[in-house]
Design a protein around this nucleic acid. Structure first.
Lengths: 345, 345
DNA sequence: CTGAAAGCGCTTACAG
DNA sequence: CTGAAAGCGCTTACAG
């Protein structure tokens, strides 16, 4: 055994001590040079930088984290049924958006998919205490979401990809459904629908409550009646609720479904019951995806600009972590992708 | 300012020094107790553990990583077009599987989606040098994949979710397409198809080359002719290639498409050209997804057990990181989900 | 069984 | 502009 301290296999890592020794300067100077701080002559800085590049030096992240309390890592913990997570393109699209930003600022994402609820709180707590992340991005806000007070107490920044905006001092990416509702109602009104149904996602989600409330308000203001049913985002549920709606006496002429999966289910059930789409029934999905795009007929859907939202969430989080406080940003408004599943009533 | 060293906001973190002080023992004893090492009396261990629990102590991950060179983190870097990543449920399903394992062993996933190829090598190198991860799981192996020699040189363990098995000393999760091919060919033979076409994914992927080769061999051994075309996994490409095939003189009676998106495209084009599916044309997708399940007719597809493969990959990586070397595991064989897109020739 | 001490690789006041 | 030194919070031989 020669020279090696611990590692063994791993090729000798280059440290700032190595750089300092080779250049015959102090570790501090190397650190200053590397971090663009004042305290070194321009000449020394260049010598350090070029040697670092030559040797392929990258600072040990643990050491940086330990001494500077900065991890360049954000955490995301998703507590949803694994089956749903992989089915809903929403999550992956958001992650892609977040990653776009992370690539730009060379930061990383620590990801944990805890199947069950409750477990996510543990992970949040642990990662915070462990100093593993600089902050969190939170999805799927609930009523009285326990994660928010927890993170406040732990003193870790977070951004809620949310839809309401209580002034509680945490970062929020606000995407009010108001604009989306306007698009939906406008489209349905133009087509002359008077009796519609809304199969929402679970009411436990803050954004679903808002959607239901706003859709009702806006629609009724235009003389459109809304029947609301609560769904759970699953295919089977969308199918069952659609069946129920289509068999009721006051049959709606248009259906708004909370996500793509339920919208496809509605389409299927309509076909099955011999209800022509879009001639006898219009269908709209509240979130766009390949499933909507590739359905037959293509399903009119709201493109929520999910990737862009992810990007913004990451951006916002880094600003908050850098000291700007209580920021609230509005997301770009959604876009209605009109396809073949909607037609005049 | 009182007492606080740096943090400021963040609620006072509990450290082993705090525990040691309160219990009036040394930091070493606390560490031993916490890590289940010998060197403390059972009584002391219990006192440490209960105080730790009481105070919500969690060891600073940077400190652990720095002193023990163990991060409890695995890295995944995916260099694919973001659009494709969010479209292919494959990735998310694999991540879910990996996460299942990580949850069990309380480890984490560091994820980076670099849009372009080439960039992924940088991230691999940087994370390795930075000591950010204990190892990597690699997807989408290419011919002479530069990632493998790079990680070897860096001395970082990795598992290739792969399909071939060169004996190159890195961990490999082997999922030979052989079994899948057998399923596919068996199904098509039973249905009496004699002339089929295979629209594969890009040849740059090792697993696609294998699929093409094996499908050809097995089919021809049963007297089935195979026409092969190389696709790129995108909808548009699947559509174009299908159009080409259906217009050729030697029209195949069955199509095998490399992924779900191309299979849906094939279905669409068939409908458009007035070719009845499955009566005049059978369609099979090499990877299952909701898209296949929810298409009309439902598309017969190979369920690759993606989640289970993800789980195994993580398991394997941890074993390798723990010292077991050059492990090769076989994944469970795929399952053919027969739906309505396949029928007798 | 237990403690004092060195060390992991950085950063950051603090003196020169 | 530069260096010596302490410190971040752990782990780990090494003595008792």
């Amino acid at each position: 055994m020669q020279g090696g301290s611990s590692g063994g296999q791993r090729s000798q890592r280059v440290t700032i001590s190595d750089l300092a020794r080779r250049l015959d300067i102090s570790k501090a100077s190397v650190s200053y040079a590397l971090n663009g701080r004042s305290g070194v002559s321009e000449e020394t800085r260049q010598r350090v930088l070029s040697l670092a590049a030559e040797l392929g030096f990258h600072p040990n992240s643990a050491a940086v984290a330990l001494s500077a309390s900065r991890t360049r890592t954000i955490g995301i913990v998703i507590a949803r049924d694994p089956a749903l997570i992989s089915t809903e393109a929403f999550y992956m699209r958001t992650l892609v958006g977040i990653e776009q930003y992370l690539n730009e600022v060379d930061s990383s994402l620590l990801l944990r998919l805890t199947g069950e609820q409750g477990q996510d709180l543990d992970v949040l707590r642990r990662w915070s205490r462990q100093g593993r992340v600089d902050g969190f991005i939170l999805f799927d806000e609930h009523n009285d979401d326990p994660r928010i007070p927890l993170l406040k107490e732990l003193g870790v920044p977070c951004v809620v990809v949310s839809s309401n905006a209580p002034d509680d001092g945490v970062g929020r990416l606000i995407s009010s459904p108001e604009q989306t509702v306007r698009l939906l109602v406008g489209h349905l009104e133009e087509l002359g629908h008077k009796e519609i149904a809304h199969v929402s996602g679970p009411f436990t989600f803050v954004h679903e409550q808002l959607r239901v409330k706003l859709l009702k308000e806006h629609a009724e203001a235009r003389g459109i009646r809304v029947t609301h049913l609560e769904g759970n985002y699953q295919y089977a549920d969308g199918a069952a609720l659609t069946r129920k709606l289509l068999k009721s006496k006051k049959r709606p002429t248009a259906l708004v479904l909370g996500n793509d999966l339920m919208a496809v289910a509605a389409l299927r059930v309509a076909v099955e019951l011999g209800t022509a789409v879009p001639d006898e029934l219009s269908i709209i999905a509240w979130d766009d995806s390949p499933l909507c795009e590739l359905a037959l007929p293509g399903i009119t859907a709201v493109d929520q600009q999910t990737m862009e939202r992810g990007r913004m969430a990451a951006d916002l989080l880094f600003r908050i972590a850098a000291g700007e406080s209580g920021l609230h940003w509005e997301t770009p408004s959604g876009v209605l992708r009109v396809r073949d599943s909607t037609a005049p009533a």
